[in-house]
């Protein structure tokens, strides 16, 4: 009804407001798509497009600042770390590991979590009680302690990181999706689908899933940042990515000791993490708005 969609009110705008809208508004998030696109290209290209060997040691050129600072050289665009490795090349190489972890962890935890959440919410009663107890138990286990156990069993690796993150985060999806389903299943169209003779599978696929996709998308995009940071902490503790593999988190961990000598070595991967997370969030918001048929034509 007319009275309801007041929140979309268009108010007259100044140039600065328009710029804010292009950054954070509801239009196509060009900047975010550009940044995320670059990260994806870096992840696909990896070592092949990096100017230097990401693991190439050159102690002679250690602690070189980024090219635009005094003492920097154009050869090392973003400077070098304590071992003289090119930070730009390592960031390109790290993008692959970071994105791989993010994609696998989100797909696995999101898929499992959403399915379990849908089952709990839809069937209710004992099924629901049992699943939600499981979620409660899972959530009460400190994830780092869990990581320690799993890493000991599986030995630290990319796979371990993905397993640990998936086990930690599925509960998150399960809880939120369950809540969503609890309200969705009360919609009349779900009851009417049953009356029409639709099978439970049809109801899940046709009536429930499309209506939780928005939520899943937003959850997933918000999780990109958390996954990257979680991966960083695991790698920092020695439970995650191991050298010679590179990840942004590992770069942060490595550079931590030299924060006084070479701020760029820790800052630049940090900025990369931040921009990637922000872009992912903004793209997620945009996708949510675009995929909703109600908003599409407003």
């Amino acid at each position: 009804m007319v009275d309801m969609d007041v929140s979309y009110a268009e108010i007259s705008s100044s140039p600065s407001q328009r710029m804010m809208r292009s950054l954070f508004g509801r239009g196509i998030p060009y900047w975010s798509l550009l940044i995320f696109g670059l990260v994806v290209i870096a992840a696909i290209g990896g070592e092949n497009i990096a100017p230097h060997d990401p693991n190439g040691l050159d102690l002679g050129s250690a602690f070189k600042p980024p090219s635009w600072l005094e003492g920097g050289s154009i050869d090392y665009l973003l400077g070098t770390d304590n071992l003289g490795r090119d930070i730009f090349s390592r960031m390109i190489a790290g993008a692959r590991v970071t994105l791989t972890v993010a994609v696998y962890a989100i797909v696995i935890s999101g898929g499992i979590g959403a399915l379990i959440g849908m089952i709990a919410g839809y069937f209710g009663k004992i099924v629901d009680t049992f699943i939600m107890r499981l979620v409660d138990i899972q959530m009460s286990i400190p994830s780092l302690a869990l990581a320690l156990v799993i890493a000991t069993v599986l030995s630290p690796s990319l796979t371990t990181v993905i397993v640990v993150i998936s086990i930690t985060y599925w509960t998150w999806y399960a809880r939120i999706i369950r809540g969503e389903i609890l309200s969705l299943k009360e919609r009349d169209y779900v009851a009417l689908a049953k009356v029409a003779g639709c099978s439970t599978t049809t109801i899940f696929v046709r009536h429930l899933l499309p209506n939780i996709l928005n939520t899943l998308l937003v959850l997933a995009s918000l999780q990109v940042g958390q996954v990257i940071i979680f991966e960083a902490s695991l790698s920092f503790l020695g439970l995650g990515i191991q050298s010679p593999d590179v990840s942004w988190g590992l770069m942060l961990a490595d550079a931590r000791n030299y924060i006084g000598n070479a701020w760029w070595a820790i800052t630049l991967p940090g900025v990369a993490i931040m921009l990637t997370c922000l872009s992912a969030n903004l793209i997620g918001d945009w996708l949510r708005d675009t995929l909703d048929p109600k908003r599409r034509q407003l």
Partner: peptide
């Protein structure tokens, strides 16, 4: 049902909404 806003799945086209019982059977 009473509420025509809640009784139609917002993500389905009218043709599919009307045909759904036929598909189910």
């Amino acid at each position: 049902f009473q509420d025509p806003y809640s009784s139609l799945n917002p993500r389905m086209r009218v043709s599919k909404i009307i045909a759904e019982p036929l598909m189910a059977h």
